[in-house]
C-alpha cells in the first residue's frame, strides 16, 4: 500500500558515531540506517554498546564524534526546547520499564500527553489511559495500581503503554522480552508486531531474544568490533561468514528458534 519511495525513507541515520567512557571506546565509526515502517532488531554480545547506541540516538548520551539524525533532524547537542518536536514523535521503553514510581499506571500513561497537550480534559485522558492500558495487554484493573504493585512483565507492558501514549511514529524498545516467561515474551512480540502494523510504527528493537528476531524483525543489525558489522534479513546475515554471527544464529539456541519459527509458520 505504501509507496516504494516512502518505504525507503530513512528515519534514523547514524554516521561515524564514536562513543566512549574515559579510556574505554564503545563505538568507533558506527553507521546505521533505520527505514520507515520496519522493525529493526539490534543484536550484539553483552557490552557491545547496544543500549549506548540507543541512548546516543535519543540524545541521552553525547557522543565524542559523529552525527545522528532522527526524522531528518540532528539530535546531538540540541537545545531542550528545540528537541521537543522530535520527542513528541517517538516513544521509548527502557529496560526496567522506568515507570514513575509515585504515579499510578494510568497517570504514568497520561504524563507525556499532559506534557505536550495540556488542553485535554481529564475525562478524555482517563479514557485514553484506560484503552492504552488494555491495548498493551494489561488487565483493566491495572490502571489505578502503582508500579510497585506490578510484576516485572506487567511493568514492561505499562512502560510500553507510556511509550505509546503519544501514538509515536518511532518506538525504541530496550530488551522488551528480557525477564518475561516464554508465553509472555511471545505475547509481547505479537503485541509489538500488531501495534507496528496498526499504527505504522518504525521500531528500533534491542534484544537478545532469538525468537523475537525470527518472529517479528524485518532486518537485524549486528553490533560487534565497536560498529555495526552487518545489517540485513536473517537469511542475508546467515550468508556471511563472520564467526560471531554464525555462532549466534547457528548455536543451539539459534537452531531452536528457527525450529519454533518454522513451526509457527506451518501453523498459520
Amino acid at each position: 500500500m505504501m509507496a516504494r519511495r516512502e518505504q525507503d525513507e530513512v528515519i534514523i541515520r547514524v554516521r561515524d558515531l564514536k562513543n566512549g567512557f574515559g579510556e574505554q571506546i564503545v563505538h568507533d565509526g558506527l553507521e546505521l540506517d533505520v527505514r520507515r515502517g520496519e522493525i529493526l532488531g539490534v543484536v550484539g554480545g553483552s557490552g557491545t554498546g547496544k543500549s549506548v547506541l540507543m541512548r546516543s540516538i535519543i540524545g541521552l548520551q553525547t557522543p565524542i564524534e559523529g552525527s545522528v539524525e532522527v526524522f531528518g533532524e540532528n539530535t546531538i547537542g540540541r537545545e531542550e526546547t528545540d528537541a521537543i518536536n522530535i520527542r513528541k514523535r517517538w516513544g521509548i521503553l527502557f529496560q526496567g520499564g522506568a515507570l514513575f514510581s509515585t504515579l499510578t499506571v494510568a497517570e504514568n500513561v497520561q504524563v507525556p500527553i499532559k506534557e505536550f497537550y495540556p488542553g485535554l480534559d481529564q475525562a478524555l485522558l482517563d479514557e485514553i489511559a484506560a484503552y492504552k492500558v488494555v491495548m498493551t495487554g494489561l488487565p483493566p484493573d491495572a490502571g489505578p495500581k502503582y508500579p510497585a504493585e506490578l510484576s516485572g512483565g506487567m511493568k514492561k507492558r505499562a512502560g510500553l503503554a507510556r511509550a505509546l501514549a503519544l501514538d509515536p511514529e518511532l518506538l525504541f524498545l530496550d530488551e522488551p522480552t528480557a525477564g518475561l516467561d516464554p508465553i509472555g515474551a511471545a505475547a509481547f512480540d505479537e503485541l509489538t508486531a500488531s501495534l507496528q502494523k496498526t499504527l505504522g510504527l518504525t521500531v528500533f528493537l534491542i534484544t537478545h531474544d532469538l525468537d523475537t528476531l525470527y518472529a517479528i524483525c524485518d532486518r537485524v543489525a549486528v553490533l560487534a568490533d565497536k560498529r555495526v558489522i552487518a545489517v540485513g534479513t536473517i537469511d542475508e546475515l546467515l550468508a556471511l561468514d563472520h564467526p560471531w554471527i554464525q555462532e549466534y544464529f547457528n548455536g543451539p539456541r539459534g537452531r531452536a528458534a528457527v525450529a519454533s519459527a518454522e513451526k509457527a509458520q506451518a501453523g498459520t
Binding site: M1, T104, A106, D126, E127, A130, Y131, K132, V134, M135, P140, D141, G143, P144, S194, K197, T198, L199, G200
Partner: peptide, 21 residues
Amino acid sequence: PDEQHLLDQVAAAEHPIELPR
C-alpha cells in the same frame, strides 16, 4: 482496512474506567 483494524483494536480495548481513590 488498516484504519478499520485500528478502530477495532481500540474498540476491543474499551473497558469501564477504574476510578482513582
